[in-house]
Amino acid sequence: MLSWLKMLSMDSRLRGNDEVTINKQETTMSKEWPLWEVFIRSQHGLAHKHVGSLHAPDAAMAVNNARDVYTRRNEGVSIWVVKAADIVASSPGDKDALFEPSNSKVYRHPTFFPMPEEVKNL
């Protein structure tokens, strides 16, 4: 700690008034911004992928902020933002019942039907 204190005395910006009077007036926003879910399609991608969420006051700000937060490394060429409130999702609790019908229909996959080797183009 002592080496820090010695150094501090050399940095004039830190010699200022240490008293913090936290002004309690506005620590809450007057109106909460809606939550948006962000979907990005990459340059080589076919579909938009969900990458995360953010709060923004309107759609234009949501797209701009999504660009700043989620595409800093060339992740995408297209951004969708959707209000989280507009998304309807299946319930995790219903997972088993909802997806059960496809469990027993393995004949929907081509691999269910072995073809003779001599037969081409099937």
């Binding site: 913090v20 002004n23 911004w33």
Partner: peptide
Amino acid sequence: ERLRTRVTAWEEGAWFREALV
């Protein structure tokens, strides 16, 4: 100083957030 800086940034940015809304 850290806390003061954060609180100041929040308070001084209020006008911008309010303008967006």
